[in-house]
Each structure stands twice: as C-alpha cells, then as structure tokens.
Design a protein around this nucleic acid. Structure first.
Length: 618
RNA sequence: GCCCUCGUAGCUCAGCGGUAGAGCACUCCCUUGGUAAGGGAGAGGUCACGGGUUCGAUUCCCGUCGAGGGCUCCA
C-alpha cells in the first residue's frame, strides 16, 4: 500500500517456506519472478500515485500485469518512469517477507488505505486468515510465492497500458492495466523481444499491404477486400479443400445466405446468438444473414427421407457468413465480420462416429502437413450444463478418444469444456514462431438433429435420429490465410504463390521470347508474368524478391538462343541456366504435389514453459 | 461495446495557430542495362468527416467514422 505504512504485524517468515496453494498451476522460479515483478511495479506506481487503488497483479504467459484505478490516464512517459523506479527497487535487493493476517485486520488495514478492491478480494475469499507480502516498504495482499529478494528480478520490461474491467466484468469499472514481460535473465528477455520484433515484421496486416494481397476500407469494417494476388491464395486453398473433400466422398452444396428468423428459432440461435446476427427486414418479416452453415444444412437433409444406407452423409458448404463482432474485437484477417468456413456436416449413426472422426483427423493431419504446421489437440468433454443422455455422451467421448488413439495423436483432455450440445476435439496449430492458433474443430452435436427432427430409417425399419458432426479444418479461410502469411512470413510455396514466376528479359531483344514462354507456361496453368518494363535487371529482381516471388526467370541473349532461362529462386539465389522444358517440369511437379518448398525461419524460445494466465495470484 | 493511442499524397513518414513537405510508387524523356533501386523532368493532398474556439485551424477543443493495443465477447 502506501510506502510509509507500517505492516500490520512484524514480518517473520521468508518466502522460502510458503507452500503453493494446492491445485494451482506450476509455480516455478519464472512464475515467481513474474509475480514479484508485478509487486515491484505496484510499488513503483504507488510511489507516483499514492492515492492509486490496486486491483490484481498476476503473472501471465510471458510476463505479468497489474490493474490500478488511477487519478489520470498513463502515458508512455509514465511507463519509463515506473520502469526506472522498478530498477531502483530491484537494485535495493529487498527481501520479500510474508506473514498471515486475520481477515478482519486485513480489511481494516486496507480500509485505512482506501483500497476497496483489496477489501472486496478478501471478502470474496471468505477465509479467516489471508497472507501479506512485503518488499521494501510495500505491502500487498497475496497468496505468493515470491522470489526471495527483489534483486532476482533482473530482466523485465514494461510493454503497454490498456483498459481492463474490474473482475473482467463489463458492468464494473474500467481500470488501467500495465503489462510487463519478465524473464530469468537478460538473454531470455532479449530473445523474447526479438520474437516480438519478428512477429511484427511478418504481421499479416503489414505483409498483406506490402504484397498487395488485400485491403480494408472503412465503408465495410471487418470485411476483407481481396486483391488479385490475395484472392489467388484464397482460391488455391479452396481448390485444395475441394480436391481433398471430393476424394473423401464429400458432396458440396450451396445454400442462401439470408433466412427468415424462424430458422434460427428452430436451431436455437435466435435465443442464444441473436446479438451477433445481422438482420434485415422485408414485408414485415425479420431475416437474418447467416452466421453459420449448420441450420440451413439441416434443411437440406430434410429434403427427402433417408435410409441408414445413405449414411454417413458428408455435406460441405463454404458460403459466406456474417457475424456482428464488436468493433473493438476486429483484427485484420484474424477476426472479421464476413468470412467463409471450410465447413462440413456429417450425418452419421452412433456406430459411425468413430470411423468418421478418424477419417477427419487424418485429413487434418494431411492438410497441416502441407504447410509444415505442427498442432496440438484438446478433447473437451461434457460440461456441467450438458443436454442429452449421459450414456450417449460417454460413448461419444470414448469414440473421440479412440479416433485420436487410432491416429496416434497425443491429446490433452479438457474436462467439462465441451459445448452443451456435444463433446469436441479442437486443434491448435503451432506456427513457425511457436504461437498457437485454434483452427480445426470437430464437434459432435446431439441437439441440432433433434431440434430439426431429422430422421433416417434404420435396418429394422424404425425412425432414428442421426448424429451431426460439425467439422472444419482451416476454421475460416480468411483467418487461416492470416495465420499462414505469418507462418511463412509472406513467402508462399510455389503451388500457392500468387505469381509463381516472373520472367525477365534483360533487354528489348528478349521480350518476344519471354512472352512466348509465358504463354506456354500459362497454357499449362502456371501463373507467370513478364516484367518487360524498361528497367535494369537488378531493379526487376529486387521487386520480385520483395514480392517474395518463388521463381525469377532471366533471359539475355545467351538464354534466348539456348531456349533456357537463368533461374533464380526466392531467397536462394541464382541457379544458372536451365532449359525451358526442365523448368516447366519442375514447376508443374511442385504444383501437382503441392510441395512445401519454403524455408521456414523458425524461432525457438522458451514458450513451452508457458505460464497459463492465472488470475488466482492477486 | 468499454479504456488508451492514432488518422497528413497510392505507400512509409516529417511538419505546424498564418491555407503543406520528403523518400518510394506513378506519368513522360534519356538510358538496352546480366541477378536487391541508372539519370532527368512532371503530376499528385478540401491534412478521415462534422461542429466549435480564433482575425485565421491540418495544427487547439468536442463529436462521428475508421485503425492499433488491451478488456469484454467468441452459444
């Protein structure tokens, strides 16, 4: 609290002996450093604003934060000031002391210091005794543990200030949250900052502009304007999706995008998802622009009677969806209001669940492998407010588990994290920078078929309700492209690259030759351009390199006469003269195999010892 | 939606109470040049939009829209 305040009771214990609360996440040295940094920061903030109210200050993945109620908004200058004061506290190498205080006394202590949030925390804990921690003159309510001395916090940096609701409740006051990052030593901190720099360099919004892939306009916030080069990537992914799904026995349909609200009353979305749907009115009826494909795919299923012989029925649909996301949540390609999912719904019998899931898991593995994306799997089971028969849930969860095992895929179980309508498997892809992105999902749904009264006739000629499996592999195409751009840092594999080769005549003499070869390549479906501008070779090479074009084909007099090109690959360099036939064969082969001919620049860092966000440490 | 920051030429950015500047890109001319920028000239902006303060606003204030960082949300 305030710096001049005396502790309630003289400190005796050291942090050493304090046992972590049971069931808490890993509380290793790094966790303690981050948590301690948060206290050190709070002390610094209180030095500047003695009247500040403190909320919570936990360690999080990569660092820590602390929420404050302050008399004015913080500026970047304040951050520098706070950081300098933190350095002083660290240099002081103060001991972290801790002791227990009866809750009543603690409340009185905080009341005296106008710390209403701390009082609320203590009251909510509802325990007879709470724990205090102190370093230097600063005392805080805290479960600990902490490092022994402030001197152990030697590698931190304050990152940013943002708003955060007290207790994460948008009805409660908005506090100011200061984020910092903290590491065991300076070199870990440096490599983390380097990672952030690299992430900034390959930010898909920046690259999208530089590579002329897409743009955004305020006339349609949250919606992507695809440029020719970006749309080519989109089409490439959609083609991949179609090829694989056709081969796996999927059929594709195309449904409307506007529906009478009655459809969503049937599906339950009107009740649960209303505020996220865009609506239009016509002739006194309310219509919704569809936010997902499931309800209308149910209508397709109902267009005729089905036999068990029809199942599994695998129906894909990739129509445009709209979701009215909050303006503040929009983020480049990653969070948009208009997008398409690579969606499919499988109508199956109970016995078919396992086999179908196994098949989808296999497809996911194959597709991610095409991009050299690693992934991590989470199986989410029955939540507290589940609907349906427990026995059916048990069997379905077991089937999901068997499918993962059948594919030899390790997974973690998130007990109680499933949707109310069924258990699910989520896939987080891990990109070249070690970042995780939730993409693929496989969800069992026992509810939607019931709501739409779907039936099929089984072997005994009785009517049964099918089970629906919702599944997507990319998630949304838009989002996946965003992730992919950052994963490959804008350098797409040849098969997916917007322009696969730029053909460069050295002088006017070779222009006709270059155009003739370009026409030949285009006839084979290759995407090539001729850069016949009146510029020097170095200029053209530079431009093609900046656009991360996989192939640069240079023709001077020698090459034109020998029906060849001097081949240069992106980020590889000059390979020397190669005959046109050979070049064509190489390109066609890479395209046919969807070869991942990208050298990924990966950054490994200590991400794996992640500290999950943990707000228990106040 | 909420908090903070931001919005100057196609792009990246400088500037500032006295009606705007650079580099790149673009157009034209010269140059026909072997693997990351050849030279010259020119054109291009109601300084996001709407109010207000002021003799005067791109600059200060308020609002709107959009963007960025978070929070919330993401059945």
């Amino acid at each position: 609290m305030s710096n001049d305040s005396a502790p309630v009771q003289s400190p005796s214990e050291t942090t050493e002996e304090v046992a972590p609360t049971d069931g808490a996440p890993r509380r290793d040295q790094l966790w303690k450093i981050r948590h301690s940094c948060s206290h050190i920061m709070a002390q610094a903030v209180l030095e500047i604003f003695p009247e500040a109210s403190m909320a919570i200050g936990p360690p999080i993945a990569d660092g820590f934060y602390y929420d404050f109620d302050l008399p004015r908004s913080l500026t970047p200058d304040d951050l520098a000031d706070i950081e300098a004061r933190m350095e002083r506290i660290v240099k002081g190498n103060f001991e972290f002391k801790t002791w227990n205080v009866p809750s009543e006394e603690a409340i009185a202590y905080f009341k005296e210091r106008n710390q209403q949030y701390k009082i609320e925390l203590i009251q909510d804990l509802g325990v007879p005794e709470v724990r205090f921690y102190q370093q230097d003159s600063f005392v805080d309510l805290c479960g600990g543990p902490h490092v022994r001395r402030t001197g152990e916090c030697k590698a931190f940096k304050l990152m940013r200030v943002s708003g955060a609701y007290w207790r994460g409740d948008s009805n409660k006051p908005m506090l100011q949250r200061i984020y910092g990052t903290a590491w065991k030593n300076k070199s870990d901190l440096a490599s983390y900052l380097e990672l952030l720099e690299e992430a900034k360099r390959r930010d898909h919004r920046k690259l999208g502009k530089e590579l002329d892939l897409f743009s955004f306009h305020q006339e349609s916030p949250g919606a992507i304007f695809w440029h020719p080069r970006g749309w080519q990537i989109y089409r490439g992914l959609r083609d991949l999706w179609r090829d694989i799904h056709t081969a796996e026995g999927y059929v594709e349909i195309c449904n409307p995008i506007i529906y009478n609200k009655s459809l969503y009353e049937t599906s339950g979305h009107w009740e649960h998802y209303n505020e996220h749907m865009f609506k239009v009115e016509s002739e006194g009826e309310v219509y919704c622009i569809k936010p997902m494909n499931c309800p209308d795919t149910m209508l397709f299923f109902k267009t005729r009677k089905h036999s068990y012989r029809d199942l599994p029925l695998r129906v894909s649909e990739g129509q445009i969806l709209h979701r009215n996301e909050l303006s503040g949540a929009l983020n480049g390609l990653l969070r948009v209001r208009q997008f398409a999912q690579d969606d499919a719904h499988l109508f199956v019998t109970e016995e078919q669940i396992e086999k179908e899931i196994t098949n989808v898991v296999g497809m996911i593995e194959r597709i991610y492998a095409l991009f050299d994306l690693k992934f991590r799997v989470k199986l989410s089971t029955r939540p507290a407010d589940f609907m349906g028969e427990p026995a059916l849930w048990d069997e379905a969860e077991a089937a999901l588990e068997r499918s993962l095992n059948a594919n030899n895929i390790p997974f973690i179980v998130n007990h109680g994290d499933g949707a109310f309508y069924g258990p699910k498997i989520d896939f987080d892809v891990i990109d070249a920078l070690g970042r995780k992105w939730q993409c693929a999902t496989i969800q069992l749904d026992f509810q939607l078929p019931r709501r739409f009264e779907l039936t099929y006739t089984d072997r005994e000629n009785t009517q049964k309700t099918p089970i629906v499996i919702h599944r997507a592999i990319f998630g949304s195409l838009e989002r996946f492209i965003g992730i992919l751009i950052e994963h490959v840092a804008g350098a797409f594999p040849t098969w997916l690259a917007p322009v696969q080769a730029v053909i460069m005549p050295i002088s006017d003499e070779q222009v006709d030759y270059c155009h003739a070869v370009a026409a030949r390549f285009r006839a084979k479906g290759l995407r090539v351009e001729v850069d016949d501008r009146n510029e020097k070779l170095g200029y053209k090479v530079r431009e093609a390199e900046l656009l991360k074009t996989p192939y640069m084909l240079v023709a001077g007099r020698r090459e034109a006469e020998g029906n060849s090109f001097s081949v240069r690959n992106f980020s590889v360099g000059d390979r020397g003269a190669i005959g046109v036939d050979e070049i064509e064969a190489e390109l066609l082969q890479k395209v046919a195999n969807r070869e991942f001919d990208v050298k990924l620049k990966t950054i490994s860092w200590s991400h794996e010892e992640e500290t999950e966000t943990d707000e228990s440490g106040y």
